[in-house]
Amino acid sequence: MSLLVESIQYLFDNFETFLQLLQEHVFLVVVAEVAAVLVALPVGILATRNDAVKRYALRVGNVFHTIPPLAVIALVFPFVGIGMKSGFVALWAYGLLPILINTITGIEEVDESTVEAARGVGMTENQILKSVQLPLAVPVIFAGIRTSTIINVGNGYLAFFIGAGGLGDWVVTGIALFNNPQILAGAIPGALLAIGLDLALGRVENRLRTGDEPGQRSTTAAA
């Protein structure tokens, strides 16, 4: 118990450094994640309409994902150099697969009869995607984004090795110096960050599910 108290003590004694590290960590994860969504989502959608895209996209995503995160980082920095940039690239690459897989699954698992009905009433393929498949796939796609985010909060610790900063600073230094309070002061906020981001994304998902559909086709709820 005293270890926990010591950790908290350590954190407050070095509060400014802590804020700095936390900020770097959040920044790293969020930017990498947004970039991963921006790539994986369109590629995932494309993959549901083109088998070749699907094959290659999954293959590339799998390669990034099966290599240990540390190795991904090690592989990236010769090309991008030391620092934040390679941290982004490594986390981005690692975050792609869960989003890619869930986008593909989410869209493909929309009930075949629903899609056929949509086609039968005269929706174009783009309208089916936009108004039927994507909205119905939102929960699955978001599950992928959440998984990817949580994984990357963890991977963010390794970014320290290529000078990208983040909470890994305290953890890695703490391990080297056998400074347990420092390790925990770096690790616990990371765990809380993962939980926090997951909850926040859950919020966004709920918004999307309940908020966006009546937007275009408002019912007469105003009455």
Binding site: D111, E116, A117, A118, G120, S131, P135, E213, P214
Partner: peptide
């Protein structure tokens, strides 16, 4: 077009 599985859009209201 009406099919056995109905194929309603579950994310929309009846009116939609």
């Amino acid at each position: 077009y009406v099919i056995q599985e109905i194929g309603l859009f579950d994310h929309m209201t009846v009116a939609e």
